[in-house]
């Protein structure tokens, strides 16, 4: 008698699952997203970032004549103070160009640069890190040697030299950031691959006849998703801040407004109390970077609560 009841109950699932628990039966990624969505600060940051994305896409087209206002000289309207007219809400710069329009256009450059640099850097790092960690031996020795050489030369020097020699174009700048930025991520991936190579689940997959490519991409790579995405976000912060530096050295993207170019232009304007360029660009960048930093941190915590200090500082 008593046994029949017990089987009935276990047949219907354990008693504790009567009330559906939203944490049960979710994949790790779903759990991470759940954790992230519960973090209010992270969600606010996320929506701020989305607004920026929309702005940068808008900056690509001549919406409301933004591009014209940002690019065309109007020497009668030099240094209009901010908040004087609706037409120039942030005022105008040395050449009478609208600062608001320029800062919107600058958003486009910075965001696309960060994305392009990241999209070039990630495959490079994955390729080198995974080959090096998975095959080890001779391949690993060579890759490690390349990494130690790249690390030994300060990244900024390579970036500056490359941009100087190959030209100040958008693609070259993104490429320069990518060829200097991959080492950190590649190292992490290499380390994880070396560990994963020994794990039972990988051995099991190999016993079942899985090829190298299948093991690398199907079995090991998905576990490194955290590192990649978090590194991508932090790399983004680094690229945007470095763009300012390049602008100061006269090596940023030529001919279009960028946050860096605006800050650089403002360096002589401050003495004369013309703050609009500086404040507009800094403010736009500041809000974006704060949101990106907070979102990156929350993402890291949500993806892997144990992963804390693997990610180091990226760039100034």
């Amino acid at each position: 008698m008593s046994t029949t009841i017990a089987t009935q109950v276990s047949g219907a699932g354990t008693v504790s699952e009567k009330k559906p628990n939203k944490y049960v039966g979710k994949s790790p990624l779903q759990l991470s997203i759940l954790r992230l969505r519960r973090n209010r600060l992270a969600m606010v940051s996320f929506w701020i970032l989305m607004v920026y994305v929309v702005i940068s896409i808008a900056g690509n087209f001549n919406v409301f004549g933004l591009r014209t206002a940002a690019m065309e000289f109007s020497l009668d309207n030099r240094y209009v103070a901010p908040f004087q007219t609706w037409q120039h809400i942030f005022g105008t710069d040395n050449f009478g160009r609208d600062v608001f329009a320029r800062v919107i256009m600058g958003t486009r450059v910075s965001l696309f640069l960060g994305a392009a640099a990241g999209l070039l850097m990630v495959p490079l790092a994955i390729a080198i890190g995974s080959l090096s960690g998975y095959y080890g031996g001779f391949v690993d020795d060579i890759m490690m040697y390349v990494m130690s050489v790249v690390v030994a030369i300060p990244a900024l020097l390579i970036i500056m030299s490359l941009v100087q020699i190959m030209g100040r174009t958008f693609f070259i700048i993104a490429l320069a950031f990518a060829v200097t930025g991959w080492v950190g991520l590649a190292r992490v991936i290499r380390g994880s691959f070396m560990q994963a190579r020994e794990y039972e689940y990988v051995l099991a997959a190999r016993c079942l006849g899985a090829g190298d490519a299948r093991i690398i991409f199907k079995h090991i790579m998905p576990n490194l998703f955290h590192f990649v995405i978090v590194r991508f976000v932090l790399n983004y912060v680094g690229v945007i801040k470095s763009e300012v530096l390049l602008a100061y050295l006269g090596l940023s993207v030529i001919g279009v407004p960028s946050w860096g170019n605006m800050i650089d232009e403002s360096k002589l304007e401050l003495m004369a109390n013309n703050w609009q360029n500086m404040i507009a660009a800094t403010l736009f960048m500041f809000v974006f970077l704060v949101a990106l930093n907070i979102f990156g941190d929350s993402l890291r915590d949500a993806l892997d609560p144990k992963l804390k200090n693997v990610i180091n500082r990226v760039e100034n």
Binding site: I5, A6, S10, T14, V15, S16, K18, K19, N21
Partner: peptide
């Protein structure tokens, strides 16, 4: 012992071992 340790969150009102117990009666739940 059949089954596994229950999730300690939201424990059911009855005996915690009831779902694995071979002698469990209605009262135990």
């Amino acid at each position: 012992i059949k089954g596994r340790v229950p999730n300690l969150i939201d424990l059911p009102p009855g005996c915690h071992f009831a779902n694995r117990c071979p002698f469990a009666r209605e009262r135990c739940f």
